[in-house]
Structure formats: C-alpha cells, structure tokens
C-alpha cells in the first residue's frame, strides 16, 4: 500500500543530465513523529526540517489529524547536487486520534523544524477524581 511507504510517490525529471545528477522535482514522505500522553492531552511532535509555517497545513476532520507540509526547493543557483535529491519535499502524515480528542482545543507550534501539536481530551473523557462521601 503506497501510503505505508516512506516514499509514496516520486516523479522523475526528464533532463538530459546523467541520472545521478538529476534533481527530482518532488517526492512525498511520511515524516517521523513521536507521540506521548501528558496532562490530559496528547502531545505529538512531527519532524519537518526546512518547512516554513506558510507551507504547513494541519487539519483535523472525522477523528483524523492530517499534517501536510512542503519544503520548497531552495538550493542557491550554481549548487550542483552530488546525488539524486528531490528538489521539493512533500510531507504527509495522517493519524487516527479517536473520538476522545477535542478538535476545537488543538494547538500547534513550529520551532527548529519540529511541529508540536497538543491535542486535549474532551472534558467528558478526562480522568476525574471521585470524592468519597
């Protein structure tokens, strides 16, 4: 299944250069991520090196959190690649967050190439201490 591959789609440039020196126009990757539960919320960190805030799209719909991001081609003119690198990197991550997460309370921040998301639980599913009368 293509969605499970690290590189799920690629396109090749059709230049006349030798294959090893071609710059591919783009490739889609599933970014590395880590998740942990803390303080009644899920904290998810997604590695998106080189991605700027304006090229990042985070949505949550039908219990699916989707992160789409693009690292644009930004190599200065005159740089010759020594291997076959994609000019643009597209990232896509889909996580099933379940019904417990409150979509309206989700917050996100991007720093040092890492997107940090906080996904708070709905009030009704947060753990409660029950006082014994």
């Amino acid at each position: 299944m293509s969605e499970n591959n690290e590189i799920c789609c690629q396109t090749k440039s059709e230049g006349n250069e030798p294959a090893a020196l071609q710059v591919r126009p783009g490739a889609t990757y599933k970014p590395a991520y880590q998740s942990r539960y803390s303080d009644n919320a899920w904290e998810v960190s997604v590695n998106l090196p080189g991605v700027l805030k304006e090229h990042l799209d985070v949505t949550i719909e039908n219990e699916i959190l989707q992160v789409k991001a693009t690292r644009l081609a930004d190599t200065p003119e005159g740089w010759r690649p020594l291997a076959d690198y994609p000019a643009e990197k597209h990232y896509r991550l889909r996580l099933d967050v379940g019904p417990e997460v409150d979509p309206s309370g989700v917050t996100a921040g991007l720093e040092d190439g890492v997107l940090k998301l906080a996904l708070p639980l709905r009030e009704e599913v947060k753990p409660r201490t029950i006082e014994v009368q």
């Binding site: 960190s45 590695n47 090196p49 080189g50 740089w79 040092d112």
Partner: peptide, 11 residues
C-alpha cells in the same frame, strides 16, 4: 562543497 543535514528539534 556544501552539505545539508536534517536536524529537526536541535537548537
């Protein structure tokens, strides 16, 4: 020569 290394999360 130029090398670019991805180091997400490293200040």
């Amino acid at each position: 020569f130029y090398v670019r290394v991805e180091l997400p999360g490293v200040p």
